[in-house]
Design a protein around this nucleic acid. Structure first.
Lengths: 237, 237
DNA sequence: TGATAATTTGTACATCTGTACAAAAGAAAA
DNA sequence: TTTTCTTTTGTACAGATGTACAAATTATCA
């Protein structure tokens, strides 16, 4: 090793940080080099191209993150109580996205934010990779949820998993909004609270009746009820 | 008016379309001009700069969209039944984001997608505007929800409104994911269904108990209480 | 009509972009 | 030490970018 024994890592970390906040196209190789204290030429030496650098970031994180997810999912599926199991499953999905088990600089939150930004930009390099690598894991989660909520069609669970991922992404992309709207009552950057809030909200949304579900016999007095009792109390048999 | 009586509109529409799919920095003025069938110089003539063009897009949509939202919110607040009212409130928030009332080319969905992308990129031009213009509307919604769910702290409602917006954004940013994961069972681009699914899931999540709520007395027979420990293990003092 | 204003066009320019590549510097092994 | 390999540096280049601006074109109106 030469001068900076971690130059490669420094570049990766700088790129991750800049990409995840400004997007891919807004960040130049020179920006990254400056942030990492490296020479621009050194970036192409280590990663061949800007795309190669982005790809390397994904390779670095995807494996550990999804591995951790599956580990937690396996444990979650063994939980007896349905309610607790559902919560454990959602937590298994959410938690590694906020802080990956591996101690890669910055943790999983930054990488998840990066994924959110790349997704929004419709990044071509990443498009295929994402679908291929993440869909397997996502499917495992949907199946697990399917087993805990067998009365719901898969279609509905997919929609709700979409909402979960969106909520997850946006929480990392724009945490200031939570702080602002709550007038300081909440801290949007508090990852621990974000996880708890997201898990509890998601568990409830997963348990909502299907939008096409027939309403079982219920003593309805009013005439209104245009959409059926869409809420959570209809959960009670 | 000159050759193309709608050249200004054509440029706006083209820019909106390109920005909302590729992001701000990935799209050049020349790209926009090409898409609009205009000369690059014409873009700077009408909008002064690239930033000015983006700003004009916001000016064009923000007003009508939030106006429609507030209209629907006012109506929603008059709904008697709590459950129905909550649903109407959420729908009042969601629906205009998918299709604005005004018939501006492309409807509200494209603009909402644009907002999602700009938010992810941390676009500086837009940052302030968003907070100033949208926070008022959002606060009106949070207050309305607060009145329907008085037992929940505002903080929790802010978190859940964050999740709603994230879910909304991501549904527009990456609809293909729904189609793919559902194996064709669902169409992620079906806006009508997206709205229904999002509304029903959100209403349920809003009604979830607060993560810090004490569990009221409930005849618990089993070891695992149904809803009680749903929050986190760390919650109990 | 002619005169004036509004729009479109084409060109130009300074700057930034990703990347290539040779030279320099350093580390490792003989 | 010398030799060999790895890494860093500096420079260069072709292309793209945002924007300015004068000329050409078209519309508006007296």
């Amino acid at each position: 090793m030469t001068r900076n024994p971690n130059m490669r890592e420094a570049i990766l970390s700088a790129a991750e940080s800049l990409f995840s906040t400004r997007g891919f196209n807004a960040v130049s190789i020179r920006d990254i080099a400056l942030e990492a204290g490296a020479n621009p030429g050194s970036v192409t030496y280590h990663f061949k191209s800007k795309d190669g650098l982005l790809l390397e970031i994904y390779k670095r994180h995807c494996g550990p993150m999804n591995k951790r997810r599956i580990e937690l999912l396996v444990a979650a599926r063994r939980v007896r109580d349905v309610q607790d199991r559902l919560e454990a499953i959602v937590r298994a999905y959410v938690q590694p996205a906020f802080s990956s088990s591996s101690d890669l600089a910055g943790g999983g939150a930054r990488f998840t934010r990066l994924r959110a930004v790349m997704s929004a930009e419709g990044n071509a390099v990443v498009g295929r990779i994402i679908a291929e690598i993440f869909d397997d894991t996502t499917n495992a989660f949907i199946e697990a949820i399917e087993q805990s909520l067998p009365h719901l069609p898969r279609k509905t669970l997919v929609w709700r998993s979409q909402f979960l991922l969106g909520a997850l992404y946006y929480t990392l992309v724009n945490p200031e909004r939570v702080t602002r709207l709550s007038r300081g009552e909440a801290d949007g950057a508090d990852m621990a609270e974000a996880i708890e809030q997201l898990v509890s909200a998601t568990v409830a949304s997963l348990q909502a009746p299907d939008i096409n579900a027939q309403v079982a016999a219920e003593p309805v007095a009013k005439a209104g009820a245009r959409k059926a009792p869409a809420g959570s109390r209809s959960r009670i048999p």
